[in-house]
Design a protein around this nucleic acid. Structure first.
Length: 556
DNA sequence: GCCGTTTTCGGCCCGACTGTTTTCAGTCG
């Protein structure tokens, strides 16, 4: 069992205990343990072999025993026992915004409802409003929430799909006679939400691939199998398709299975694909098609085919172009690691700079820094910079944009910072005009360098706030304010459409991890995918620049 | 259930919003 899976079980235990109205602190203890495990740097198995599982913060003797059981048996009897007591349908309901365990308990006890379909039906039949503390609005939110849930159940974020697809490919790769196995389709194109995992496999012996796929520990079900095609379901209801080809057909199949349906139908139109047999690279397939090599992220038929035929594609920004990260949290606010640890991790990644941007004072829950603490942090950063070579930590802050568009610190404070990222963390429901003006006011503040996660969307969970994007882009262009592509796979905000529009207007972009954990610095790769889908080049992205150029841009 | 340089028992993050109520419980970040 992986750390992530252990964390998921602990989190589920917390949910079930909460639905049973158990001691809230016990619930919290499980959540805390889940959080610690999720953010662990080390594999739990290694800790287990060192007999050090209980050294993890938030894990005492009870949870330690449960984790050890999970590692030894791939199961957890306490979790299984609770699963029998708490219907899965109640856990599903927790995902609906506005429904917590107490409300769900009342609904389940008074109306005997234990699944989403019955809940939706009761809401539509106006039965929910008969319960204490619930009214028409509650019913409306339930119906809306279930609709959203049905949509989100069809697709998952890259953050979930990519690690699963990589692990699955690796497993297939270990099969006898397998030459290649790699994720293709929408995952390879970097679409922010994907419906299934597609894996292209080339192998000498097709039947052995079937056995290898069936033996994967997360394969729940094979729903359809042909000689060269396997369709099925993995854990968490993740659908997959495995396409199997002969080694000599691998590269043209790679192009075929990576592009969108429209894309491949256009570029291979009227072409017998057997002419590509034996080709040794994707580049050669494109050469034979009379086209410029097209990066996977662009293969969507959105104008790139014409450009590729005229050899006019831009050179897209690459992950290795990034020289730093301009939005990162530490344990001074709600990050998991110290200033020193985060800086060391960034340096290890090959970065040459990092802006520490903890939360500002109004964000109490996230440990927002008072002016005094911010000053202290500034001194700590200066001291750290004295100690490390060939690396610069910039003094920054992710300052809250308050309801009226003013910022959470006075200008004199902001002036002393190297990097000011301004973001919204409250009043998500303002109307279009108020919300737009609020952000424009922040853009107009001369100390603001970057707007963080502009639209506030959370993929599969929360729609963007009401914003007049065009007006905001005009203001950002006028004030030379940088827009962030927040690389967290739950956000990818701004999205590729806005990013494309922004650079056309001369706005610069920062690809920021918004890491709250040193491991999360690596999430930058998802932001790069988004930028590449938007057609961005190195020069469009300021954190591919060296630090002097970045600072100069902010000060200009 | 976890934790401890005040504690092995008695605490554990808290302020604001939402939708329901007429003073507040539940939810969320």
């Amino acid at each position: 069992m992986t750390n992530r899976e252990v964390a998921w079980i602990l989190e589920s235990i917390a949910d079930m205990l909460e639905l049973q109205d158990d001691n809230p602190f016990r619930v919290k203890a499980y959540r805390k343990a889940a959080h610690s495990v999720y953010h662990l740097d080390e594999d739990l198995r290694d800790l287990y072999h060192r007999n050090a599982v209980n050294e993890v913060k938030g894990i005492g003797s009870t949870i330690q025993d449960q984790i050890e059981e999970m590692l030894e048996t791939e199961g957890c009897s306490y979790y299984e026992q609770l699963s029998k007591e708490v219907p899965q349908g109640l856990l599903d309901m927790l995902v609906i915004p506005g429904l917590g365990h107490k409300t769900i308990r009342v609904i389940s006890e008074k109306l005997g409802i234990d699944n989403l379909d019955a809940l939706a039906a009761a809401a539509k039949a106006k039965q929910i409003r008969t319960l204490p503390g619930m009214g028409a609005k509650t019913e409306y939110n339930i119906i809306k929430g279930i609709d959203l849930l049905h949509i989100s159940m069809q697709k998952v974020t890259l953050g979930l799909a990519v690690p699963m697809a990589e692990e699955f490919s690796k497993h297939i790769m270990q099969g006898p006679g397998v030459c290649e196995a790699r994720p293709v389709g929408s995952i390879r194109r970097g679409r922010p939400l994907v419906g299934d995992i597609d894996i292209l496999v080339s192998a000498e012996n097709v039947s052995r691939v079937h056995a290898q796929v069936a033996s994967y520990r997360k394969t729940k079900e094979i729903t359809w199998a042909q000689k060269d095609f396997i369709q099925g379901v993995l854990d968490y209801n993740m659908k997959f398709e495995v396409i199997i080809v002969e080694p000599e057909d691998y590269y043209h199949s790679l192009v075929w299975t990576t592009g969108s349906k429209e894309y491949r139908e256009i570029i291979f139109k009227g072409i017998d694909r057997t002419v590509f047999k034996g080709i040794k690279s994707e580049e050669d397939v494109f050469r034979q098609l009379g086209m410029q090599y097209t990066p996977p992220e662009m293969r969507e038929n959105r104008g790139e085919i014409e450009k590729a035929r005229n050899y006019e594609l831009p050179e897209l920004v690459k992950l290795s172009d990034l020289q730093g990260d301009l939005h990162v949290h530490t344990d001074w606010s709600d990050g998991a690691h110290s200033l020193e640890d985060v800086a060391a991790a960034a340096k290890k990644m090959g970065y040459s700079y990092l802006a520490v941007t903890d939360h500002s004072k109004s964000l109490h829950i996230s440990g927002g820094l008072s002016e005094k603490r911010l000053m202290e942090q500034g001194r700590a950063i200066e001291a750290l910079n004295e100690q490390i070579n060939d690396f610069t930590v910039l003094k920054g802050n992710e300052v809250d944009i308050l309801k009226d568009g003013t910022l959470d610190y006075h200008d004199e404070i902001l002036q002393g910072l190297d990097v000011v990222v301004a973001s919204i963390h409250s009043y998500f429901n303002l109307d279009l005009e108020l919300q737009t003006n609020r952000i424009i006011k922040a853009i107009e503040n001369p100390h603001v360098d970057i707007i963080g996660h502009l639209t506030g969307r959370l993929l599969n969970r929360r729609p963007p706030y009401e914003l007049d994007i065009d007006k905001i882009l005009e203001a950002a262009a006028e004030h030379r304010t940088v827009l962030e592509i927040n690389a967290h796979p739950d956000r990818l905000d701004i999205d590729e459409e806005i990013a494309r529009k922004a650079v056309q207007m001369g706005i610069k972009i920062a690809i920021n991890s918004d890491a709250h954990d040193r491991k999360d610095l690596g999430l930058a790769k998802y932001g790069v995918l988004c930028a590449r889908r938007a057609g961005l080049t190195r020069n469009d992205v300021i954190n591919t620049w060296d630090i002097n150029k970045v600072i100069q841009y902010f000060n200009s």
